[in-house]
Amino acid sequence: MRQNPSFTLADVDEIRRVIDAHPWATIMSAGEGGLVASHYAVLLDEGRDDLTIVGHVGRPDDLLHGMGERELLVVFQGPHGYVSPGWYGDVPAVPTWNYTAVHLAGVPEILDAEENLRVLDRLVARFESRMPDPRLMWERPNDAAFVERLAAGTVGFRLVPTRVVAKRKLSQNKPPETIETVIAALDAEGPYSNPALAAEMRRAQDARRGGAQ
């Protein structure tokens, strides 16, 4: 991802927020047969306060990625969307796309069966707990044999990233009044209405005003 000082996202807490809010990740590697990409939900490692992540892949994705032997690139995509040049006013302009993205790279550690089960349990709890009547991993009608049989078809991993590239391209190169106009347009009804992106732009705008990175 091409980096630009104006759009660099360097605050670890903010990067963690993006990962936590958008856990559906793309996992990429350069395999023996060429580039490989897989898609899985990934979580921050609850025992750390850095950018370490945990997750799993289904077999045979572990072999396709050379899991534990080769570098992985894990990509998280935050709110994103189209920005019309008409929102900039009567000035020369072209369309663009605003977005937030985080890239983590490194060679993952393979989890043993017990820790993999704990990560799978966390994944289920993270998403299922929002349901009115949650069906957690170890609850009936599931039994231990069923859970362990399914878990055996997965390979858990922990990635302590050795390279991090995070970017928040949210019109920071525009005057404050233009940014406010874009936020209002994204919040309004229309073909490119995008409240999630408007909220992300508002967060970045407020952080700049407060002197945060």
Rank of each mutant, 00 (worst) to 15 (best):
M1K: 07
P5H: 01
P5V: 09
T8Y: 14
D13N: 14
E14F: 06
V18M: 05
I19V: 04
H22M: 03
P23I: 04
W24V: 13
A25L: 00
A25M: 01
T26C: 13
I27S: 07
S29K: 08
E32G: 12
V36W: 01
Y40E: 15
L43K: 14
E46K: 13
D49H: 10
D50T: 04
V54G: 08
P60T: 09
P60I: 06
H65C: 05
H65I: 04
M67Y: 13
E71F: 03
L73F: 06
L73S: 08
V75H: 02
F76A: 01
G78L: 04
G78F: 04
H80E: 11
H80F: 14
G81T: 10
Y82F: 14
V83S: 00
V83H: 03
W87V: 03
G89I: 05
P92V: 11
P92I: 01
P92E: 06
Y99D: 03
Y99M: 06
T100F: 14
T100S: 13
A101V: 12
A101F: 09
V102I: 03
L104V: 00
A105I: 11
A105Q: 12
G106S: 02
I110Y: 01
I110K: 07
E114C: 13
E114Y: 09
E115K: 12
N116E: 10
R118F: 09
L120E: 10
L120F: 05
L120V: 11
R122G: 11
A125F: 06
R126V: 10
F127E: 06
E128M: 00
R130D: 14
R130A: 15
P132Y: 08
P141I: 07
V147H: 02
R149N: 13
A151V: 04
G153P: 05
V155W: 11
G156V: 07
G156W: 02
F157A: 02
F157Q: 02
R158K: 10
L159M: 05
L159W: 03
V160S: 14
V164L: 00
V165W: 06
L170R: 07
L170N: 04
L170S: 09
S171Y: 10
Q172A: 09
N173I: 11
K174L: 13
T178K: 10
T178F: 10
I179H: 13
E180W: 12
E180N: 08
I183H: 04
G190R: 10
P191N: 07
S193K: 09
P195F: 00
A198F: 01
G211L: 03
